[in-house]
Design a protein around this nucleic acid. Structure first.
Lengths: 131, 131
DNA sequence: GACAAACGACTACATATGTAGTCTAATGCC
DNA sequence: GGCATTAGACTACATATGTAGTCGTTTGTC
């Protein structure tokens, strides 16, 4: 097995950009800018800076097309989410993780189907506790 | 209802210090230092800086005893955890929250009793979906 | 083929954060 | 009562982050 790469650490602003790329697959800078949720109020140049930093961090890759780049994720969303959730757990928890999890459930916006699935996951965890 | 105070934003290092104070209630700087998990390798002065910054942010208060301070939390752990979890949700989620939650459950270290309780919480959420 | 528009590279700068160090005043020990 | 210790206040400094701006080059337009 290849060495386990530690995914890069992303700032909140960088996460916003990554989400657009994960949702759309491959975009030029201008299109990332256009697809960001309004309300950020970022200048186009700000988005360009974030894209460059993400490339530098290894979170994005790009293909050159003419004189411009098509950016695409270089790490999967799942991998990044996993790493971030781990990091949050380490940060917030000193003993039991259950209260933090409860808080998470409280915050979440869930459909009945999702609730079923999460309960199933808890059952599996109960039946197979160690990882 | 009184104006909803936004709890201060804490850095990861500041969280570590807060956890010690939440667990012990009230401590002098030196005792906070002593009770931090080893492995940080922080100098005592570093801890002092973090304590001062936390006071400046309003996350800690202190009572003067002799020429030194007894620090104590000025915000509840629950409030801070709630705010942080919300912020993480906003950061990681673009559409469905369920995958992030699933990741959280995956990471968590849970007892059978905790699992029961979380399932109960999910049931309640199903039966009373809107907040 | 000249010129405006657009692109990426590089630079800028304030604030936050990690990680301490110095300085001055109070305190406790002998 | 003098001196080492300890405390808090203030200062320091490198890196990360938010938020752009400038510059030189390429390219599309007429």
């Amino acid at each position: 097995m290849v060495a386990q790469e530690t995914p890069p650490i992303l700032s909140p602003a960088e996460w916003e950009v990554m989400k657009v790329l994960w949702d759309h697959g491959q975009l030029a800078a201008r299109d990332v800018f256009a697809r960001l949720p309004q309300g950020h109020g970022w200048a186009y140049k700000t988005v360009k800076t974030l894209l460059s930093r993400l490339v530098a961090k290894g979170a994005l890759a790009y293909d050159q097309v003419g004189n411009s780049y098509l950016y695409r994720p270089a790490v999967t969303r799942q991998k990044m989410t996993r790493a971030e959730v781990r990091s949050v757990f380490r940060r917030l928890i000193s003993e039991a993780s259950s209260p933090v999890l409860a808080q998470f459930i409280e915050e979440a916006d869930l459909t009945a189907a999702e609730i079923r699935q999460l309960k199933r996951q808890l059952d599996e965890k109960r039946d197979r506790p160690a990882r």
